[in-house]
Structures are given as C-alpha cells and as structure tokens.
C-alpha cells in the first residue's frame, strides 16, 4: 500500500532528515515508527501526506509515485488519508461537531449524511455528548479524540498519526492507542509515530525504528516490555 524506495530528504541548512530509506507497509497493517527525537519520524509522515517532497527516491501510494504529484492533485490525495497530530490542530472557534465535519464538507456530502457520519465518529471516540463544545472547553485527551474523530470520519484507508499521545498522560495514551487498534481491526492501515516505548508493549503491530534518518534494528523487546 505504501512503499518508500531509496528515499532521501534533505533540508536546507540542517542536512539530511532521511537517508536512502526503503520499506513497505501492507494494506491493513499497523506500523509504529519509533526512534528518538530528530530521527526522521515526522518527516517520513510528512512525505506521505505530501506536506514535504523527497529530495531523492520514490514514495509509492497504491503503486503510484506521489513524490512527483502535481500540486492540483494533492488535495484529492490528502482526502484519502486520516491525519492525527500531536497538537491535534483543531479550529478553536468551531464546535466539536464542525471540526469533525470539516473533511466531509470539503468532500461535498449533504447535511444529513454529514450529521450521521460525524455523530457516528464522535460516538466511536466517546464524545457524542460534547458535539456542541468548542475545543477550549475540552480536556487534552478529549481534544485528541476529536482530532481522531476528524481523521476517521471520512473512512480513510490509511491513518497517519504523529506523536498522537505526546501531550497525554499514560492512561489517556493507552486509551487513544486502543482506539487506533479498533480502527485497525476493521481494516484501516495505521502508521503511528511515537517514542513512547511503554505503550508499544501493550499493543500489537510492527515496529520500524529510525535513527538519524536511517532504518535501524527495532528496540529490544525487553526494553519495550
């Protein structure tokens, strides 16, 4: 489903964030990207969402090299993804409902369908009763769950998440990860960047470890567990 083929990403002034990286993620797989800060996890996810383009190499999505995708095609590509961020990137002036509805409005669904899907997504993350609340009135965990609801509301085939539990306490982090596990159970491909090794021990999935922009051996299971 997703294949990195000898991908290098170089930023002006800071050197190479990714070096000659090659790996593959199959459809329906749950993959955790691990590694220390600055290892290249976020850059890798940005290449999938086309927030950045690789300096060299190919990023194949469903067999198509998206690295050279025309700018006008990027919105359509992004609509195939669900993206979750550490800082959740919610619109503070809009209600929970409106935040979750945003991708559906962009996709052009009718109001009834939007309402049905938004409520279903909010129900899945346990926030149906807070659909009218604005993000400022929600806890950090609740805000992150709204971000997840927004990512899954379009029923994407792939969800990418960049440190989704970075701001949460261990109990909430586990809850969020279990939520991702449930989406993976219904066939959604998951690619989650995290440095929280304690969590990984409680979840299944494959681990890809990055070190200085290169693939490295996954952490010792003893360290993880």
């Amino acid at each position: 489903m997703i294949r990195f083929d000898s991908v290098t990403k170089r930023y002006d002034g800071t050197g190479e964030a990714l070096r000659n990286l090659s790996f593959e993620v199959d459809s329906g797989e749950m993959v955790f990207l691990t590694g220390s800060s600055g290892a290249g996890k976020s850059t890798l996810l940005k290449l999938i969402a086309l927030i950045e383009r690789p300096t060299r190499g190919q990023v194949l999505f469903d067999g198509r090299n998206i690295a050279r995708m025309a700018a006008r095609e990027i919105p359509r590509h992004r609509r195939q993804l669900g993206v979750v961020f550490q800082d959740n990137k919610l619109l503070v002036e809009r209600s929970t409902f409106d935040n979750v509805a945003l991708p559906l409005v962009i996709a052009g669904l009718n109001d009834r369908e939007i309402a049905r899907r938004v409520r279903a997504a909010l129900d899945q993350v346990g926030l149906l009763k807070k659909e009218r609340s604005k993000p400022g009135a929600l806890s950090l965990g609740e805000q992150q769950r709204v971000g997840i609801a927004r990512a899954v509301v379009t029923r994407p085939r792939v969800i990418i998440a960049d440190e989704p539990t970075g701001n949460l306490d261990p109990w909430l982090s586990l809850e969020i990860m279990k939520l991702f596990g449930r989406f993976n159970d219904i066939g959604v491909t998951m690619l989650i960047a995290t440095h929280d090794l304690n969590l990984l021990g409680k979840l299944g999935g494959r681990r890809i470890r990055l070190e200085n922009g290169e693939l490295a051996e996954p952490e010792d299971d003893a360290l993880v567990f």
Binding site: P75, K89, E93, L102
Partner: peptide, 16 residues
C-alpha cells in the same frame, strides 16, 4: 493562517 493550514491538511482544494 492556522485555519487555512488545517483546511489544506484535510484535503481542501485551493478553490475551497
């Protein structure tokens, strides 16, 4: 600016 970034991230076209 933040709102525009989010809109583009979730797949909004330039026209939208």
């Amino acid at each position: 600016r933040d709102e525009i970034e989010v809109l583009k991230l979730v797949g909004a076209s330039d026209g939208f």
